[in-house]
Design a protein around this nucleic acid. Structure first.
Lengths: 123, 123
DNA sequence: CAGAATCCGTTTAGATACTG
DNA sequence: CAGTATCTAAACGGATTCTG
């Protein structure tokens, strides 16, 4: 069984500094989705909690693209009630390595980026 | 003095497999620009050779954004004739580490991505 | 040389409402 | 629950033309 950690919504807020850093893996939400799945499969509604800024439409598109590229799987259980689970494939999990490296760089350097932006805006 | 290696245009073609991989650092050209500057400063016209798919407008925008974020510098030498050089800052150079890690992942896995896409399109 | 200006089609994202 | 449908606005990207 997969131990489900609670997801931390704070990290996924648009105001989070890491969102200001020029990394985009795929579309706007793809990287966040992959990281949400790091600790195990998640239902659509579970993903919506930390990714509350994403409307169902854009989240669905992100999920479809990731599925198309073989990075995640989509498993539907119609019984007893509709239940859809998304999970990382081995390929998707392997992508977490460079993705997390990028996030670590962002965490280390976002102050410098913000400082540079401010001094560029107001010279 | 900086030893200038010739830039390899092939790597930057839109048809290059790495372009099909879902990594985007900043806008469409940002990552490519950073890699072009890895071996030393480049003039605007020098960048246009390997990045020939980018019009001057979009290339300029990429450069401005990278400059705004403190990843590259822009140095203008008006004499004897107009000459503008772009170079990595230490911050920009530090970003090459995760960037190159992402490119290495892409180089290792792009066949899998393409295979997944094909089997998704034509089930 | 190193861009800026303009026009234009595509893509992306969000809000809102609705459905099997 | 897990989406889809529709509309709108903004961002992105490219082609072309012009300029200090």
């Amino acid at each position: 069984m997969t131990q489900r950690q609670p997801l931390a919504p704070d990290m996924f807020d648009e105001l989070c500094p890491s969102s200001l850093v020029p990394f985009r893996f795929g579309d706007k939400w793809a990287a966040l989705v992959l990281r949400c799945l790091e600790d195990g499969p998640r239902r659509f509604s579970e993903l919506r909690v930390p990714l509350h800024r994403a409307t169902p439409k854009v989240l669905t598109r992100s999920l479809r693209t990731l599925q198309r590229d073989g990075l995640i799987t989509r498993t539907s259980h119609p019984h007893p009630d509709l239940r859809v689970e998304y999970a990382l494939t081995p390929l998707g999990r392997s992508m977490l390595t460079p993705l997390n490296a990028a996030c670590a760089w962002a965490a280390d350097h976002w102050e410098e980026l913000l400082t540079a932006r401010e001094s560029y805006e107001a010279p």
